[in-house]
Amino acid sequence: MELREIEIFLTLAEELHFGRTADRLHVTPARVSQAIKKQERALGAELFKRTSRSVRLTPIGAVLRDGLAAGYQQIQEALAAAATAGQGISGVLNVGYSAAWCGKLVVMAADTFRARHPHCAIHIQDSQLGDPLGPLRDGSSDVQLIELPIDEPDIVNGPVIFTEPRALAVPAGHPLAERDSVSVEDLADAPMVTITGQPQYFLDVHYPRRTPKGRSIPRGPSTSAWQEVLALVGAGKGVSPTSARAAHYYSRPDVVYVPFHDAPPVEYGLLWPATGNTPKVRAFVRTVLETAGA
């Protein structure tokens, strides 16, 4: 009995309907009938009882089904494992992310990826605010979902996955905390808590030095850790731009998040090393795009 004939028999044993079996296997009902008759002739026994209204397994058919099912499943798993290995989708994929909302999407995508590629394990880790590209360069991350822009010759910019409106983290009790929204021009009225370790072009986008009208934006303390940013803001040392979604993930009694009404959104995209454009990275990128779209 050939593998295709086993597939036809097991599918018919499950569906008990020649038409549905043919639809599932993308063949004609006649092809299903021919395969079953061939098997019955070879075995010298009837496998199905057929009437104009029903199809059911005979006792001999049930014995054959039970004997073939486990072996067929093992064959399918072996074929899938070989195909996955042949595509390079095996081993370990290290995935980094920046903000908590990026981590949530990465975890959801990882669940789907594992189901599709069971021979590839995924290790998820958060990237450091002050050195987001370090893991990509030292090999500890294969792909990352982080804030843009990133423009580095050794890093591939993948697709933008989503955007988020901006907000300003301000100390509770600060005059800006009473506003329904703030303007980029308001940044000139309070020292800005900034981060260290990022490329200057990145800082120019997220922590500008001047407002659109040319007013200077004063600098407050700087740090390389997001929790320290919030601690400094909460202590009244300054304000800091961020994603509006931070209000849901990083709620603190001493920090208020006020949305901007005129700031461009924050873009989040996938990055990977220029030397690491592997099949498993490409497969994970596709999975993230599907997950974000859903």
Rank of each mutant, 00 (worst) to 15 (best):
D204I: 05
G276W: 02
G197L: 05
H206Q: 07
S224L: 08
R215K: 09
R252A: 15
A188D: 03
R245M: 12
K213W: 00
W272D: 01
D254N: 13
T278R: 12
T278N: 09
L230Q: 04
P265Y: 04
T211L: 06
Q200S: 13
V258F: 08
A244E: 12
A246Y: 01
P273M: 00
S240M: 06
P253E: 11
D254W: 06
S243Q: 03
V205Y: 09
G238C: 12
I195W: 03
A188N: 00
D262Q: 05
P199E: 05
R210L: 08
A190H: 02
G220S: 14
R219M: 14
L203C: 10
S243C: 09
V255I: 12
P221S: 12
V239I: 15
R219D: 10
H248A: 15
A190E: 08
R245Y: 11
S251N: 07
V266D: 00
S240F: 04
E228A: 15
L270A: 08
H261T: 11
W272Q: 02
D254P: 10
H261E: 11
T278G: 10
E267C: 08
W272Y: 14
V255M: 11
T223I: 15
T194M: 02
T196P: 02
R209Q: 12
A274N: 01
K237Q: 14
L270G: 06
L232P: 03
E267S: 12
G269V: 00
W272M: 03
A247C: 08
S216D: 07
P253Y: 07
G236W: 02
V193E: 00
S216C: 05
L271H: 07
G238V: 13
H206V: 14
G214D: 04
F260L: 11
F260N: 12
S222N: 07
H248R: 15
K213P: 03
P221F: 09
Y249A: 10
A274T: 03
G234H: 08
V255Y: 04
L232F: 12
P273C: 03
Y201H: 11
S224H: 13
R215E: 07
P221V: 15
L230W: 04
S251R: 12
P218V: 14
A247D: 08
G197W: 07
T196Q: 12
Y249R: 09
A263G: 14
T211P: 01
Y268K: 01
Y268C: 03
K280P: 05
V266G: 01
H261M: 01
V255P: 03
L232V: 14
L270V: 01
A188H: 00
A274R: 13
S222L: 08
H248I: 10
P259Y: 06
A235F: 07
H248G: 04
R215S: 09
G214E: 02
V193P: 04
R209T: 15
Y250G: 00
L232R: 14
R219A: 15
H206E: 09
G236N: 11
K280T: 09
G234P: 11
A263Q: 05
I217D: 01
G234Y: 06
P221L: 15
P221H: 11
N277V: 06
G238W: 03
P212F: 03
V266C: 03
K280V: 14
A274K: 13
P212S: 06
T278C: 13
Y250P: 00
S222H: 10
S240Q: 05
P273S: 08
V255D: 03
K280Q: 10
I195E: 02
F260A: 07
I195Y: 01
R215Q: 13
A235Q: 15
R219K: 13
P218C: 13
S243T: 14
G276R: 09
I217G: 00
